[in-house]
């Protein structure tokens, strides 16, 4: 268990809802849910979730901390916003899903080997490096996420798309070395650093 996780468990004891309200992005909305179920029924990925949003909200209120934070469910959210549009209480459900996933990651208790989480991490690392997404490296890293053999298989399968993107100028082989960056890379890094500080102050408070 990470130190942060231990201290949060200490601090909130049996009141997981309070913890979510204080530390999860948009977490203060959770108590507004009236358990109508429209979000769960509206999610296009719904059948593949272990716990749909409204069930997660009930679990939060019931204090099922471990089960919620280690769940794969919120990582299934594709940000389609169907639930937000239909929620009769206007809960920002999509944002709460990402907030929960992010909080679990900070505490170090997120589900390991979850593919959406891995992709999100790759995407972020890639973006944070130069301030621009390097599609070539993102693709390469993604394909080899599950090991060399699997990666070559996936890459071969996607070759057609890759070549098409090269032709259309959407993908450049120059990206392999260095790649394009934002103009003010130093400023960009400083900005990210500041944002992370603010974020940390909020989550750890």
């Amino acid at each position: 268990m990470s130190d942060l996780n231990t201290s949060m468990v200490e601090k909130y004891r049996n009141n997981f809802l309070k913890e979510v309200e204080a530390h999860v992005e948009e977490g203060e909305w959770v108590k507004m849910c009236m358990q109508c179920g429209v979000c769960s029924g509206s999610c296009p990925l719904g059948p593949h979730w272990e716990h749909p949003p409204q069930e997660l909200f009930m679990m939060i209120r019931a204090g099922k901390r471990e089960e919620v934070l280690s769940s794969e469910s919120m990582w299934m959210c594709t940000s389609c916003y169907n639930c937000i549009v239909r929620c009769p209480r206007e809960l920002p459900i999509t944002h709460i899903m990402h907030g929960l996933a992010h909080y679990a990651t900070r505490l170090g208790i997120e589900p390991k080997g979850q593919p959406t989480r891995q992709f999100a991490q790759l995407f972020w690392d890639n973006l944070a490096k130069n301030g621009r997404v390097n599609e070539l490296w993102l693709g390469v890293n993604l394909y080899f996420m599950n090991g060399l053999v699997e990666g070559i298989k996936v890459a071969m399968g996607m070759a057609g798309i890759g070549l098409g993107m090269l032709k259309a100028g959407r993908l450049s082989l120059k990206e392999l070395v260095g790649g394009h960056t934002v103009k003010d890379k130093k400023g960009f890094k400083a900005m990210i650093k500041k944002a992370q500080e603010l974020e940390a102050a909020r989550v750890d408070k």
Binding site: G37, S40, G41, P47, P52, Q54
Partner: peptide, 11 residues
């Protein structure tokens, strides 16, 4: 009609 029965979370 499509949805989720919240008593038991049945789709």
């Amino acid at each position: 009609l499509k949805g989720v029965n919240t008593e038991g979370y049945h789709r």
